[in-house]
């Protein structure tokens, strides 16, 4: 049911959102391609209650990394990525695949390339609060009150086989 098929426009069921690959979430619990950025939340190596909010702009590849309380990360300076940004990029590639991340960031990358070395932006302050609140919103899905109704609309969303 790929978009290359004849009659695809006439299908009620089609895969539009590319599948996501499973990955370990402990280090980088949240990654997304949204608001024109690759952004996410990275666990602190030293504190269980602190997290870092890291982001990289599409096109300019300017980046930022700070705690969720807006304290700048000491590792990200000038044109240097800190370990949080590196982890963010690595996990994004695991989750979405290199091609999709590169396309979103508007960078030319071939399979096997180290995406991190192709991003030549500089440190530019960006608000961590927005990304952090998106992470919290993401987590609220796990706290959604249970419903009891069957959901007939889910017939439009079959579980489709994994793509390797």
């Amino acid at each position: 049911m790929s978009s290359g098929e004849a009659g695809w426009e006439e299908r009620s069921v089609a895969r539009i959102v590319p599948p996501i690959r499973p990955r370990k979430l402990a280090k980088v619990p949240f990654v997304e391609l949204a608001e024109g950025r690759l952004q996410g939340v990275v666990s602190s190596g030293s504190s269980a209650t602190r997290v870092y909010v890291s982001s990289i702009e599409a096109e300019t590849h300017d980046f930022n990394c700070s705690t969720n309380n807006n304290r700048p990360c000491g590792g990200a300076q000038g044109s240097f990525h800190c370990k949080h940004l590196k982890a963010l990029i690595d996990e994004a590639v695991k989750q979405y695949g290199l091609e999709r991340v590169a396309r979103y960031l508007k960078v030319e990358a071939a399979e096997g390339d180290d995406l991190h070395s192709l991003l030549n932006g500089k440190l530019v302050k960006a608000p961590a609060a927005v990304v952090f609140s998106r992470f919290l919103r993401h987590l609220t899905y796990l706290k959604v009150p249970a419903g009891s109704e069957p959901l007939p609309e889910m017939h439009w969303f079959p579980a489709l086989k994994a793509v390797h």
Binding site: S3, W8, E9, E10, R11, S12, V13, A14, I16, V17, P18, A34, E153, W156, F157
Partner: peptide
């Protein structure tokens, strides 16, 4: 579900084919 599909397809104008029926 619809919003997520639209989000990954943005800007939709640049899509080669649009899942019109769906």
């Amino acid at each position: 579900g619809l919003a997520a599909e639209l989000r990954v397809s943005c800007p939709v104008a640049t899509m080669e084919r649009i899942p019109e029926r769906r």
